[in-house]
Amino acid sequence: MSNTVLTIANLHAELRAGRKTGPGILRNVSLTVHQGEMHGLVGESGAGKSMIARAILGILPRSILISDGSIDCLGRQMVGLADSDRRKILGRDISLIPQDPLTALNPARRIGAQMTDVMRLHLGWSRARAHDAALALLNEVHIRDAEAVLRRYPHELSGGMRQRVLIATAFACEPKLIIADEPTTALDVTVQKQILRLLREMQNRHGTAILLVTHDLGVVAKMCRSLSVIHSGMIVEQGEVSDIVTRPEHAFTRALFAATPRYDRPADALSPVPGEVVRELEEKAATFDRARAGLS
């Protein structure tokens, strides 16, 4: 497939403690996202999935150092990019749909002001033009009475509405890549389905590539074409969703499927992730760190 939007190659990140480097956070991570594709990044908390998202956006905590590898987004090298250059890209070529819509919106500013900011900054549009564009975007995400919503404050909207506003804003400057970090985790299940449907609809219309970060295998199975499973900062399995869902190869992926409860199966079908599978991965990570320490 041509037209790659994002290529991460052999990315290493480590915890930095003074001059010494500590344990690894990301270990030899490689992944590719093509134009118009939705790629799922699945893992448990602490696996490193959010770290990958933050590395792309260049917002890793100061204590974490990218020691090796590259992140190529639309031909631009994101690792080591100057902040002034990064600011020109974020919100324009790459945008983010965050997990918690309430904390992502400024409680003291109206929705309209927050939506138009990004267009006025990146596209140099006038207040009036950005306002009209924001109206059109809200209509596109099926918000009734868009004019009134623009005048509201975040707390006046429901969780689902806030997430719609953030999705609309993420698409405002026609980005090539959107990073959606657990975009539906805080929502009720019926609202989640509406938001997922909207995300797919917007993606199809705009041809945007989306990196969907989630802990939910179900969401990935329904939404994504390709998938990376991550544990201990390592990608343990990667490929087409259709292959992995039907025939997971790695023991951890298999265990993850077996540990996911399903309403359509009797209680005894559930089995927790075996300790040895996790231990094996942790040992592999430790061996990897030792090898890298020997290198440097």
Binding site: V189, T190, Q192, K193, L196, D216, L217, G218, V219, V220, A221, K222, M223, V241, S242, V245, T246, F257, T260, R262, Y263, D264
Partner: peptide, 9 residues
């Protein structure tokens, strides 16, 4: 119906 099961569908 709204629950996404980890199946292809």
């Amino acid at each position: 119906d709204a629950v996404p099961l980890p199946d292809l569908d």
